Computed example of a mutant assay.
Amino acid sequence: MRPDDWHLTEDIDDFLAHAGGFLRSRPVPHIMPLTWIGRLRARGAAAYGAEAAVFGFLEREGEVRGAFYRLSPSRGLSLTPLTAEQADVLAARLVALGHCVPSVSADDATATAFAEAWQRHTGATPRVRVRLCLHRLDRLVPPEPFPAGRGRTAGERDLEQLMGLCREFAEEVGEAVTIGADSWADTRFADKQYTLWEAPDGTPVSMAGANPMVAGVVQVDPVYTPAALRGRGYAGAVTAEVSRAALAACAEDVVLFTDAANPTSNALYRRLGYVPVVDWAAYDF
């Protein structure tokens, strides 16, 4: 494989003209790049501090076989599935071009291969930040019984509540983001459709978001119940509601990520009919 099999561009339209079909050909494992590139197209790079975004695709014999994106020099590299050789050639190409890569995320095998290649080429020591598991809905199995209360679609009047819940979620998972009235529109949380689970007195006790459908796939993200209200079935109920809404909107697939180290959430989603399809990893350098 030649280093110039990897084509780099800062033009998102040029990238999609070459790699868009490849990404849409396997939308479930490619849900992360499809989602983020869709956001950039819809709202502009400035909204996410991605004015210096870089995109790349691997092309051999006229066929795209892999892709990556990096939203800014301070953000990590996100990869589609690659072989160890493909990852090594990419690492060498990025080093030769003077790119700094603070982290990488991809399916577990690809992330590990790139982390090892980056260490070989730069001497940087990789450290696992998180391991995730991508799940796909096989057949929705609503919890039985549902907890007391009801699910409803969130509206404008719920914005303060949603911002507070998303802020708590981001803090709990270690996501560096400022969420407030002035910054909400520029966060990844703003473009979702939210469902709330309300207690019988109308108090919201759990939420689930759904990203805009892309290539027939809806990603459920985030799901959050405040710590004091957990263990009562609210997360399962609201996830079932948002999953049902995605299917009603004619989604071909519904997916979500879980923390591989959290047996409670993994067991919950599998009871609802989600099945694991891809192990995921993120490494910091």
Rank of each mutant, 00 (worst) to 15 (best):
A53I: 03
Y283P: 06
V28C: 05
A237D: 13
G209E: 08
S206R: 06
R139K: 08
N211I: 14
A249L: 15
L162M: 01
A267P: 07
L229Y: 02
G151A: 07
G66W: 03
V277A: 03
L23V: 02
A260S: 12
T178H: 11
G216Y: 11
H30M: 08
A248V: 09
P204C: 01
C166Y: 12
V223T: 06
A235F: 03
Y48S: 09
V242C: 13
A46T: 14
Y283Q: 10
G98L: 06
S74N: 06
V128T: 15
D201A: 02
P27A: 15
L272K: 13
G180L: 09
A267W: 13
W197L: 11
P212N: 08
V278A: 00
D221L: 04
A19D: 01
S25P: 12
G76V: 00
A113I: 13
A228Y: 06
R152G: 00
A181V: 03
P142Y: 01
N266V: 07
G155V: 10
V205T: 04
R2N: 13
L8T: 00
S25H: 07
D158Y: 03
G236K: 09
A210V: 00
T203V: 04
R26W: 00
L8W: 05
Q193I: 01
T258E: 04
A52G: 05
A185Q: 14
S206I: 07
A176M: 14
A261F: 13
A17E: 13
V254M: 08
G155I: 09
V128K: 15
G231I: 11
F146T: 11
V218S: 02
R139M: 02
A235I: 03
F68N: 05
A190N: 01
R127Y: 10
L272A: 05
A111T: 06
P33H: 03
P73S: 00
E144S: 12
R93D: 02
M32Q: 09
V64N: 03
L247P: 12
E160K: 04
Y224S: 13
R70F: 01
R244Y: 13
G149D: 07
L79R: 00
G233W: 05
P142N: 09
E61A: 12
T239K: 15
D5N: 06
I12R: 05
G164R: 02
P33G: 06
A113T: 12
P33Q: 02
R271W: 10
T112M: 15
A113Y: 02
N211H: 15
V141G: 11
A124P: 14
L132W: 05
S72I: 08
F257G: 09
V104A: 03
T112K: 11
R24N: 08
E116M: 14
V89K: 04
W197Y: 05
V128F: 15
I179G: 12
W197P: 10
V278G: 00
V220A: 08
S74I: 10
